[in-house]
Design a protein around this nucleic acid. Structure first.
Lengths: 141, 141
DNA sequence: CAGAATCCAAAATGATACTG
DNA sequence: CAGTATCATTTTGGATTCTG
């Protein structure tokens, strides 16, 4: 059990190759990609603006994710030969082809999130009710 | 710069709360969940069978992912009081509601995978052509 | 059979300082 | 401005052993 010689990596690659869903998720997955893609769906954007509007992202992550998206052919990087430098990012045609999928995911996500939200609240209410019952039980036998 | 007290965790939660897509991805994401969900879309399945048909998954991961899916209300765990024990897993109604989304993701994934595949081959052909040119160039000035 | 528990490796993310 | 480089930390995944 010295080296696992990346069974991990191997498993990942295998699954990506067989399963379309896994492949898609590996492309749009990661913590920040959904947000970046969402923003770029509305039009091109400069690097600095992206950094400022995405709350909490580090420069390292932003560049990294952008580079991956670029490598996957979803995002185009446009460099203007100016000073101070200016770089814009925009979706390619292939990137735009994700729109229906992204909307489908987003819709289900919001639906599920809302549902779980209310369930949680119900659970909390139940717990509260239980505690209340205990307390009251002691007082009113 | 001692403790980051999980800015990581915080960022994740924030994004999940704001962005439907990120929330959905955190639910169906992970290396094995797409495969598990895909299998369960075809009907209920026993634990052992899941383990056997998913190539390369470890028991730990299988149980872990199933538990998460259960917690998120997508999968139901059915225990039969028999010996030897028997446990089956099936999608809940909420789990089934993912079907259109999953198909949309899978379709795009396969499309994108195929496209990148051919692009890679084209690149390889180009490289090959270049090398060939170099070799031939030396021979036929 | 279906898993729980433990321990370790690898990948993802974050903070920060520096540069053309 | 738009990054790059480096290092620390957090999270995820895998192997193995044990149990009701």
């Amino acid at each position: 059990m010295k080296k696992m010689n990346s069974t991990n990596q191997h498993n990942l690659e295998t699954i990506r190759a067989i399963c379309g869903t896994a492949h898609a998720l590996s492309v749009i997955g990661g913590r920040w990609k959904p947000t970046i893609l969402h923003l770029l769906l509305h039009g091109k954007m400069r690097y600095g603006r992206l950094r400022r509007v995405i709350p909490g992202i580090s420069e390292r992550m932003l560049v990294l994710q952008l580079r991956e998206l670029e490598k996957d052919g979803l995002v185009r990087r446009i460099v203007y030969a100016e000073v101070p430098p200016r770089v814009e990012y925009e979706l390619t045609e292939e990137g735009l082809s994700m729109k229906p999928m992204l909307e489908s995911i987003s819709a289900w996500g919001r639906y599920h999130h809302a549902k779980n939200q209310t369930e949680q609240e119900e659970n909390e209410e139940e717990e509260l009710a239980k505690k209340l019952e205990q307390v009251l039980g002691d007082l009113t036998p």
